[in-house]
Computed example of a mutant assay.
Amino acid sequence: MADENDVLTDLDAAPAGNGADTAPTAGIISQYVKDLSVENPKAPQSFRWKDAPQMDVQFNIAATKVSEEVTELGLRITVTAKAEEGTAYIVDLTYCGLVGLRNMREEQAHAFLYAEAPRMLFPFARRVVSDAIRDAGFQPLMLDPIDFNGLYVQQLQQKRAAEAAGQAAEAPAGGEA
């Protein structure tokens, strides 16, 4: 039957494990600026430059286990603006979130840490970067949204392809021995 074990109609049924906390859970516990550096090396001359600077934006994700169920996720964003006359500004931000993970398989936890959690933290980190650039005396920079899930899937595919190529390269060598 389709209604069998339906949570909406079977409200009196006891949960599996007699109330045990077995459901997978993930979420952001807290978020904060861990490190912020703003350099304005050519001020005040850089405020008079006429040419639009070339922007270089780099980002990186790092995860550090804090406890069995908590991981610190760091989203590092570095923005460098260079013009012909020199570097206008450099903003380097490490924006972190404490991520709670419970009752999740390793691959689910990994996907949450490197795809979903960065997606949740990014809007806040983007605001910090924009405000820092504005406070340095320049037009605020609104970073475009990043498809962390797409990047995660792409990196998994590249890793699997590299592993498959490595195994394919090892197979003939093993067969010749």
Rank of each mutant, 00 (worst) to 15 (best):
S37T: 09
R105P: 13
I28H: 06
A88D: 11
G74Q: 03
V99F: 12
E72K: 01
A26E: 07
A109D: 08
R105D: 15
P123G: 15
N60R: 02
M104W: 04
T80N: 15
I77E: 00
Q45K: 09
F112L: 04
R105F: 12
V70W: 08
R105I: 08
P53I: 07
G74L: 00
M104R: 06
V79G: 11
M120E: 08
K42P: 01
A83C: 14
N40W: 05
A63G: 06
A81R: 05
A88K: 13
L93V: 08
L36S: 04
L113Q: 03
V79S: 09
A63P: 01
A115F: 01
S37L: 13
E84C: 14
A43N: 01
A20V: 07
M104H: 09
K65M: 08
V57H: 02
K34Q: 05
M55Y: 11
E69T: 15
A81C: 13
D92K: 12
C96T: 14
Q108G: 09
V79M: 04
F122S: 04
Y95P: 09
E116C: 00
A81S: 15
L98I: 10
G100W: 10
G100Y: 09
T94Y: 11
K34P: 04
N40S: 12
K34R: 08
P118V: 06
N40I: 01
D21A: 15
T22P: 13
V66P: 04
M55L: 12
E69H: 11
K65I: 06
Q58D: 08
Q58Y: 00
R76H: 11
T25K: 15
V38R: 00
S30C: 09
E69K: 02
Q58G: 03
T22M: 14
Y114R: 09
G100S: 10
F112H: 02
V57D: 00
P24D: 07
S30T: 14
A23F: 13
E84Q: 14
Y32Q: 11
T25R: 15
R48Y: 03
E106Y: 09
V79A: 08
